[in-house]
Design a protein around this nucleic acid. Structure first.
Lengths: 340, 340
DNA sequence: CTGAAAGCGCTTACAG
DNA sequence: CTGAAAGCGCTTACAG
């Protein structure tokens, strides 16, 4: 049914190898035969069978993207899918296909990856840091299989990874506050020991400290990242009775509130609205990430946005380089912040 | 480097074909040889090369999922990715891999699909209805390539597709209003000619009509689906001055507001809050889809939820059946609504 | 019950 | 500049 290289060879009156060479643009073929073969191929509407080509060449031209693909993941973790789109686009540009594979604790990450390597079903893998463990890392390193981890693992490792620099994002937030002289400033974070929140807080505070503004601990609030807690924190912060001010050690309504994430910002926005304050005149209002909620808030926060799609593109480019150059070692922070 | 079927054959002292038969559980092999071969395979940690197996069998055991994979798509269209996860899971369960491919007007849908068919890089495709056109449909039908379209195309076709039944979802909304006797009811939709909005409105109104409640046109509002327009519409609806009531032909504050989508619901929620009304006592409040916004609203709407992940699972099952049984024709609405 | 052989559709040294 | 032949790692009639 399908037209193969054989059919083209017959029609053009040449050998199969010659057709192959024409299809691959070898320059040793005479112009005349090239034309004859191309004409035959065109007439038969011949397209090389991609799987056969890769099989003969001993590669797959396929990269597997490993991540959690559970029900609801698209809503709880949309950034991951944006990264995935970035990776995909870059891989396609480099002539690779991309397959998906589910990986989570239940899916036995180590066995999944061992199978990929043994069955040679891909030339490389892109995998999310959140689903990788020490045993899996050891396996990848041991087999020296081309890989790239998105989001650096929380243990010592020799894996190749890329990540966003949340501390730097925190510094950008500090920069905004400084530029608008919106002091004193209050940082409302997630839980104290949460990685991303901690990094953002650290960058924020250290940037301001370098510029002679100390953000004291009583100007940092930890929450469990619900909008309610954000709302309550903001109500408390923004409602200092001016008569109390001197009494409570110089407490005053802050010039700005920085929310570590979108959900907290929902509550803070609601509090600002309820108190009839205007942004940024009465209080500047800042958060991280445009999505999922910042666009529908009123008042609307300023946003420190990280272009994660582009991080995906970078990751895609890196895995391609890794495949061509297995010795390559990459561990880097890629941050493309944009003030929106 | 890799251990092949040959190595196992040598070690076990049998032929390559025998090893193949053992790996594929032919029952013609004696128990004794089976054991010997299995031992050899285990010792060498042999795993068949998946690409070679498929190549020899003449299939790929791969399905390509075609959709838009642009930057930001994960935020603007999270439901699509939830469907994708459902499709993936079901395909994996059936022993298929799933590759992604970008398809959009710029990506030349027809050429992309022609290449897939010609290069035999997949046994079938799952494709989003929004990116399919007549020419592409003709090609697929003409080649009778196994396919499944998610979301039915807006032109006459003989494609296989599945879709959610938005009209039925509208009926569910009507049912809720009827059950809570929350009349009069106002439906705030998107633009009048928008497909989904129109279907939901139709189901809603016809269900209620069947139960002796006519939703007149002045109780239906069309918007361009911004939260602002939702807010303004709700403010107007909910602020009828009681003294005006008789004047304006019996206008009265409605017992319920049904929002056709989440964005409209954001504005309506805000209006209800601002007017100090309580839900559902003063006014019942309903929308469609839990995501992206309903969970963070205050007041929070009731939701008619459609399980699109499960629709993806169904679609995955159907494409597998299509491949085994090419004559199969499927055009159906799959709706698994859940009142949350 | 087992194996030799042809074949899946290409690529690529190698010889001419 | 072109082609015969071996090979990629399996499967599957077919023969014994």
């Amino acid at each position: 049914m399908g037209v193969t290289i054989r059919d083209v060879a017959e029609k053009a009156g040449v050998s199969v190898s010659t057709v192959s060479k024409v299809m691959n643009h070898w320059k040793t073929i005479s112009e005349e035969t090239t034309k004859r073969v191309e004409a035959a191929a065109a007439e038969l509407k011949y397209t090389p069978n991609a799987r056969a080509v890769n099989f003969a060449r001993g590669n797959t031209r396929n990269i597997i993207y490993l991540t959690e693909l559970k029900k609801g993941e698209a809503y709880s973790n949309p950034h991951m899918f944006d990264i995935m789109c970035g990776v995909f686009t870059e891989l396609a540009r480099n002539g690779y296909t991309m397959s998906l594979m589910d990986i989570s604790d239940e899916a036995h990450p180590k066995e999944t990856i061992r199978d990929i390597i043994d069955q040679k079903s891909a030339d490389g893998i892109v995998i999310h840091g959140s689903v990788i463990n020490q045993a899996t890392a050891d396996l990848i390193i041991d087999r020296s299989f081309p890989h790239l981890v998105i989001g650096h693992p929380d243990f010592d490792n020799r894996l190749c990874w890329v990540d966003t620099n949340h501390e730097l994002a925190g510094e950008h937030a500090g920069e905004y506050i400084l530029k608008h002289n919106a002091f004193p400033t209050v940082f409302i974070g997630g839980r104290k020991n949460e990685f991303i929140s901690h990094e953002r807080e650290k960058g924020f505070r250290s940037f301001l400290l370098r510029h002679k503004h100390r953000v004291t601990s009583d100007h940092v609030v930890y929450t469990s990242s619900t909008w309610k807690e954000g709302y309550e924190a903001a109500m408390k912060i923004l409602s200092y009775d001016s008569s109390d001010a001197s009494a409570a050690g110089g407490n005053q309504i802050p010039g700005s509130i920085v929310c570590e994430n979108n959900t907290i910002a929902v509550g803070v926005s609601r509090a600002i609205k309820e108190l009839g304050l205007s942004v940024p005149e009465d209080v500047a209002f800042l958060t991280f990430d445009v999505y999922p909620y910042s666009t529908i808030l009123d008042p609307k926060p300023e946003v420190v946005e990280i272009n994660v799609y582009d991080m995906g593109v970078q990751a895609g480019a890196m895995i391609c380089r890794k495949i061509d150059n297995p010795g390559l070692m990459i561990q880097s922070y890629i941050t493309l912040p944009e003030m929106e």
